[in-house]
């Protein structure tokens, strides 16, 4: 059951709606990047509100690395019919042909080719001039300075010096030839806000966010789910059934699970309130250096 929105969530929602409409009005060909996770779910929910009763004036784009959890893909494929949205799916076919995968290529190269490169391919293919994403400033230290409209060069590079000042709600959406933007309507939301909003608005999520018995192996001190038989097991490893849930969703070999009994939203929220860990904990890609996101961003990773 949906609950009434607190003043705080109402304010966040309104700000995001305002940003969505500015994007729709100022750009010729926007697209919304849809990653199937909880932030995307909120992003989509707010977008639908921004244009109601009209349909979304832009399509959704999912960059499929082919290594997403199966439950994610099933959830994604139900969307168009359920919500009346247009969904585009893009996979880096060259990467696929080269057999790039998280095990042989390593997490960094896999992400680079199947996610970052793939996204650039898709943006070029459809000539989108604005890519809307669900990133938040509270996610990581280097994101704290990200603008709502983040300008990219023709080669999708993020240029720390070429960003435009954003005062009041006056977003400047004028592009130079070849330039495009990434836009972040949820910039001011925190992880707690996302969960509170999901609860208040009763937003449907991929079941992986809720605890269930799932087959996992323990590797380097983290629990990885064996989602299909492409996952090579190391000597001595044996999948075991554990009640786990995920705080963040991505490619299954790169996303750690946490042991939990929280199988409803309320239980997840209660568990979160007691938690002392930030959500990126579950993303294996962040573990090299604290400033690594910064480098990733400059290279064009979202």
């Amino acid at each position: 059951m949906a609950r009434p929105l607190s003043a705080h969530l109402k304010e966040l929602e309104a700000e995001s709606i305002y940003i969505f409409r500015e994007i729709a009005a100022e750009f010729e060909k926007p697209v919304m990047l849809y990653s199937i996770g909880k932030d995307s779910a909120v992003l989509l929910h707010v977008a639908l509100k921004a244009f109601y009763p009209s349909k979304l004036p832009f399509p959704l784009l999912h960059v499929d690395t082919t290594w997403k959890f199966r439950e994610m893909i099933a959830f994604r494929d139900r969307l168009p019919e359920k919500l009346g949205v247009e969904l585009l799916v893009h996979t880096n076919q060259e990467g696929l042909a080269q057999g790039i995968n998280p095990f042989s290529a390593g997490s960094g190269r896999h992400t680079d080719i199947m996610k970052t490169e793939a996204l650039k391919q898709a943006l070029d293919k459809y000539q989108f001039d604005a890519a809307i994403g669900g990133a938040r400033r509270d996610e990581e230290r280097s994101r704290a300075k990200e603008r709502v409209f983040s300008f990219r060069t023709a080669t999708h590079q993020w240029d720390p010096k070429g960003q435009r000042p954003e005062l009041w709600r006056l977003y400047n959406g004028r592009l130079e030839t070849g330039q495009s933007i990434r836009a972040f309507p949820l910039s001011d939301w925190t992880e707690t806000d996302i969960w509170d909003y999901i609860a208040a608005e009763d937003i449907d999520l991929v079941p992986l966010y809720f605890a269930k018995e799932r087959p996992v192996v323990e590797r380097h001190g983290q629990l990885l789910m064996v989602d299909d038989d492409r996952m090579p097991l190391e000597p001595g490893e044996k999948p075991m059934m554990k009640s786990v849930r995920f705080r963040t969703l991505g490619c299954y070999p790169l996303t750690a699970a946490m042991e939990s009994e929280a199988d409803t939203l309320d239980k997840v929220l209660a568990e979160m309130r007691g938690s002392r860990m930030s959500e990126r904990q579950g993303r294996l890609i962040d573990h090299d250096q604290s400033a690594s996101m910064e480098r990733k961003k400059r290279e064009g990773y979202f």
Binding site: S6, A7, D138, E191, T192, R273
Partner: peptide, 13 residues
């Protein structure tokens, strides 16, 4: 940095 509030959600409203 996400805030994890120790508050009851009643107050949060």
């Amino acid at each position: 940095m996400s805030a994890v509030s120790q508050t009851e959600s009643v107050l949060a409203a």
